[in-house]
Structures are given as structure tokens and as C-alpha cells.
């Protein structure tokens, strides 16, 4: 479960990027966070990933308040989240497989088991057989799928994605959203920041709309 209450974020020297934002996302939900550019979507993503701290207010992830999380606890929180960054943050000098192995190496999984799991994650995003490729040789859509594989390889209960379909053609974007949908259907909570809500097959999704840092409407 993710809950935000009266969340405010003011960057040093800047204006408020988020103001008084409160919402609750229950386990297994798929939620789109929308709003025009500069509305505060990425800021909220960074707060949820404990990359930034809120100026005031609380964010609870599985009962843990990120606003008061001690620094040494942050890595352990991140291991429970699958994070997909807007700029993907892939390691371009490492193979596709090594990129996916990174989170498993961090938790100290034995190499054999880790490779098994990494291959399974790559299969889930349709990158089977590309494990020895360098990410630079992948298309934009494939790179995004690699980023998803890395995010899910630790089997997190929550997936957070910032603009995962930006700069992708419609077909690739559709594939990416279908992958998120598939994770939601096996019980993963999914929160996707996107400036436009896509039309999506299947059950309706929830939409949180930000405007100038304020949550202005919720729709199903």
C-alpha cells in the first residue's frame, strides 16, 4: 500500500513542486499519475523512491514513513520497489544480462540462481536471447523493456515508472503498457507517471491528476 498525506515539496530556492498532496493506492492497483509538464509528477516519483525527501507531510509505503526514513534504511526500501526511471539509467558498458543481474548481485544472490532469475525476467519482457547484447544495440522500446526487467527481477510488490513511454512509437508504447498490465494482473501495485492517459484494453485504471503541484481530480 502507498499513502501520501498532505505532501509538500519545495526545492531549495524554487517554488512548491507539490502542495498538500494526499492519496492512497491499495495493493494490486494500477494508477496513472498525469499532468502537464512541470506539474510535479517526477517530483512525486522521486519522493516515493526516497531520492528526495518531502518538505512536509508523510508518505507511507507498506507502513514505513519515508519522510522519517534513516539514510541506511533507504537501500532496503528501494529493494522492495521496482523503479523505472525516465532516463532509464541503464549501464551501457554492461551486457543486457549484467544490467538485470545488478540488483541481484546487490542482495547477494548466488550467481547461478541470479542468472536463472535474470533470464526469467528478460523472458517476461520479451528480451529472451538478447542477454549478451549491449544496451546500445537495443531499440528505444527494447531499452525500456530492459529497464523493466531490471526493476522486476527482485520481485517487488510495487512498480513505479516515470514516463515509461516517452519517446516511443505507439506500437512500442503499447507493448510497454501491456507489460505493466501483466504485472498488475499478478498482484503487483503499479504507479505510472505519464503526461497523457493512454487508452488501455482491460479493466479501467485509476487516474491521479496533478496541476501545478496540486492533486486536482481523481477519475477511474
Amino acid at each position: 500500500m502507498i499513502a501520501a498525506s498532505e505532501l509538500t515539496k519545495r526545492y531549495p530556492g524554487g517554488r512548491e513542486a507539490l502542495r498538500n498532496v494526499s492519496f492512497t493506492i491499495t495493493a494490486g492497483e494500477m494508477v496513472f499519475l498525469t499532468g502537464h509538464s512541470g506539474a510535479g509528477k517526477s517530483t512525486l516519483f522521486r519522493l516515493l523512491a526516497a531520492i528526495e525527501r518531502p518538505t512536509t507531510g508523510a508518505i507511507l509505503i507498506n507502513g514505513q514513513n519515508l519522510a522519517s526514513l534513516r539514510r541506511p534504511a533507504i537501500p532496503y526500501l528501494r529493494r522492495k520497489l521496482g523503479l523505472i526511471f525516465q532516463d532509464r539509467k541503464l549501464l551501457f558498458d554492461r551486457s543486457v544480462l549484467d544490467n538485470v543481474l545488478l540488483p541481484l548481485a546487490i542482495v547477494g544472490l548466488p550467481r547461478k540462481e541470479a542468472e536463472h532469475r535474470a533470464q526469467a525476467a528478460l523472458a517476461k519482457v520479451g528480451l529472451t536471447g538478447r542477454d549478451q547484447t549491449l544496451p546500445i544495440a537495443l531499440s528505444g522500446g527494447e531499452q525500456q523493456r530492459l529497464a523493466i526487467a531490471r526493476a522486476v527481477v527482485n520481485r517487488p510488490a510495487i512498480l513505479l515508472a516515470d514516463e515509461p513511454t516517452a519517446n516511443l512509437d505507439t506500437a512500442s508504447a503499447g507493448e510497454i503498457l501491456a507489460i505493466f498490465r501483466a504485472f498488475q494482473q499478478v498482484g503487483v501495485t503499479v504507479l505510472i507517471a505519464m503526461h497523457e492517459v493512454p487508452s488501455l484494453a482491460g479493466p479501467p485504471v485509476r487516474v491521479l491528476r496533478l496541476e501545478h503541484g496540486e492533486l486536482c481530480s481523481e477519475s477511474k
Binding site: 523512491a49 531520492i51 541506511p72 537501500p75 532496503y76 528501494r78 529493494r79 523503479l83 526511471f85 539509467k89 541503464l90 549501464l91 545488478l102 540488483p103 546487490i106 542482495v107 531490471r150 527482485n154
Partner: peptide, 14 residues
């Protein structure tokens, strides 16, 4: 690389 490792849950010790 260090930045990415931290983002996916690496501790300082790691």
C-alpha cells in the same frame, strides 16, 4: 554505475 547501483538498492558498504 555507482548512481545506478544506489538507485536499485545498493548500500554504501556494497
Amino acid at each position: 554505475e555507482i548512481e545506478v547501483a544506489k538507485l536499485v538498492g545498493a548500500t554504501d558498504a556494497w
